[in-house]
Design a binder for these strands. Structure first.
Length: 488
RNA sequence: GGCGCUGUCGUCUAGCGGUUAGGACAUCGCCCUUUCACGGCGAAGAUCGCGGGUUCGAAUCCCGCCAGCGUCACCA
């Protein structure tokens, strides 16, 4: 029996959850579910300067919204914690002492000023900068003296010659010459472990079997492998997934538009659409495009992850979101759509039964037209409010003749004398009046739509009229008559 | 610049020595239709980054080049 797979998503809470991070989290999650393993969330909050509580909340919320529930981590616990790096300092200390004791790492007393001066010199001479290993060659008594004097220091890893191979699940075997890696810092002068050191200790202690992360970490991997070996830890498998880029093929950033998961949520992207879209950025399964979470969990595999970076193109996301919106039943659509109606002030916080029915009916009528939930208010206002004007180009076209006003007046009396006011009856009335006038139905319908909705486009006019209601239709027609006469 | 990764329609991709290089989004056209959408049908769009090989045959294998990206911190 194979050991249970354990993967992790390890964000640093220095900003909101962005789509790239969400995609990394998703791949980890899918791998865990596919292999019956565990998905762990660990917070890399060692950068006290930039970490914030707010960013943490955004990340956790974002993951939850996407349905990427973690098995171990903040808020859920687990027996391989703590899950915040700032609470794991004692662990790092123990291992850094071990490395120093074994001579695999050494204290370096060089100051930041010395180092940056050295760096500048290297740059000026067009030379490759690499730490000069000055402190590695410190005489024992000198070392002893500085240590006793309490001179500030960092701990550096003592690089050994050779070649380090990263056997990557998506990229294959990638080799690095250790000579190009220098004696990197593993403990900062404030005693905190650096990223490369902390990540190794944490992944090893948490029993992480597969490290699935962005390709930007590939060049860090040889250092980490060397650390695993120095610490006597078993190596996990690595899988470096391609980066997500903007339309200009540079790494996706804010200037490419929205990158925050929450901003897509707020625009009314459904989490299942976001998941589906993200999954297809770097992974695919034949010609199939639409996958729900259960299918993704079942079908996902690292072998099908491709190597080339993908451009984040929201056209497909929008289409997908439309697909998911159309697949919803009305009650669910109401659940997710209500907040948008509320925010637009079209409904009150606690609508009565009748209003709920009206909302649902309105949603039913616009369901096929939606790509974002945030489009709901604009597409449905006129069901809730009398239009406060008419689209000018449409008005020029349909409200330019006096016959229209006369026809509207006839329509008003027609509506008032109807026994039953419903879709069928309204349609019959309108088609009959059109043929009695000797015009095509469309010639009546277009002005009618404009009068009732203020728009040149709307859901089917008969359904629209039924939902607006007879009395309100009459009022709006009368208003239109006034408008036409005033503007002739 | 060093090191590393990547390179098939505008975009996401299928392809793993023999295909008219397939699909999806987007685009365009037609149909449906009272409008806008949805839906259906169809079109256009890739000399597979470029150049050499290997082979009867290469997008697929090999080499070189070019381009893009990533990374080179006491940041993660």
């Amino acid at each position: 029996m194979e050991r249970e797979t354990r993967v992790r998503f390890a964000p640093s809470p220095t900003g909101y959850l962005h789509v790239g991070g969400a995609r990394t989290a998703l791949f980890n999650y899918l791998f865990a579910r596919n292999t019956g393993g565990k998905f762990i969330l660990r917070i890399e909050d060692t950068d006290l300067e930039r970490s914030s509580e707010e960013a943490m909340r955004d990340i956790l919320q974002g993951l939850r919204w996407l349905g990427l529930e973690w098995d171990e981590g903040p808020q859920v616990g687990g027996d391989r914690g703590p899950y915040f790096q700032t609470e794991r300092i004692d662990l790092y200390t123990a291992y850094m002492n071990q490395l120093e004791r074994e001579g695999l790492a050494y204290r370096c007393y060089c100051t930041t000023e010395e180092l940056s001066a050295e760096r500048e010199r290297a740059a000026a001479e067009g030379r490759e900068y690499k730490y000069n290993e000055k402190c590695r060659r410190l005489a024992p008594n000198e070392r002893e003296q500085r240590s006793r004097a309490g001179t500030p220091s960092v701990l550096r890893f003592a690089m050994t010659p050779g070649t380090t191979i990263v056997d990557d699940m998506v990229r294959g075997r990638v080799s690095f010459d250790n000579a190009l890696l220098d004696d990197f810092v593993i403990v900062k002068s404030d005693g905190m472990a650096t990223y490369n050191f902390a990540v190794v200790v944490d992944d090893a202690l948490m029993g992480i079997t597969h490290v699935i992360r962005g390709e930007d970490h590939l060049s860090n991997t040889p250092r980490q492998i060397l650390l695993y070996k120095a610490l006597g830890f078993a190596l996990p498998r690595f899988a470096h997934i391609p980066l997500i880029m903007g339309a200009d093929r540079t790494r996706l950033s804010k200037r490419h538009g929205a990158t925050a998961v929450t901003s897509y949520r707020d625009q009314g992207i459904l989490p299942q659409a976001m998941i589906n879209f993200l999954a297809l950025l770097g992974w695919g399964y034949g010609d199939k495009q639409l996958f729900d979470m259960a299918e993704l969990c079942e079908l996902f595999s690292i072998e099908r992850v491709n190597k080339n970076p993908a451009v984040f193109d929201t056209d497909k996301l929008e289409w997908m979101n439309g697909q998911y919106i159309r697949a919803m039943n009305i009650d669910d659509l109401y659940q997710v759509g209500f907040p948008y109606l509320l925010q637009a002030g079209l409904v009150s916080e606690e609508p009565d039964e009748g209003m709920i029915m009206k909302c649902k009916e309105a949603l039913r009528l616009v369901q096929d037209r939606l790509r974002y939930l945030s489009e709901i208010p604009d597409l449905t206002v006129f069901f809730f409010e009398r239009p406060d004007g008419y689209e000018p180009e449409a008005a020029d076209k349909w409200f330019a003749r006096s016959e229209t006003a006369i026809r509207f007046e006839k329509m008003v009396s027609g509506l008032q004398s109807m026994a039953l006011f419903n879709v069928e009856a309204v349609e019959t009335l309108i088609r009959n009046s059109a043929s009695m006038e000797g015009i095509k139905a469309g010639e009546l319908i277009h002005p009618l739509r404009l009068a009732l909705t203020g728009r040149k486009a709307s859901p089917g006019i008969f359904e629209t009229m039924e939902l607006i209601g007879r009395d309100e239709c009459v009022i709006r027609l009368q208003k239109a008559v006034e408008f036409i006469r005033e503007h002739l």
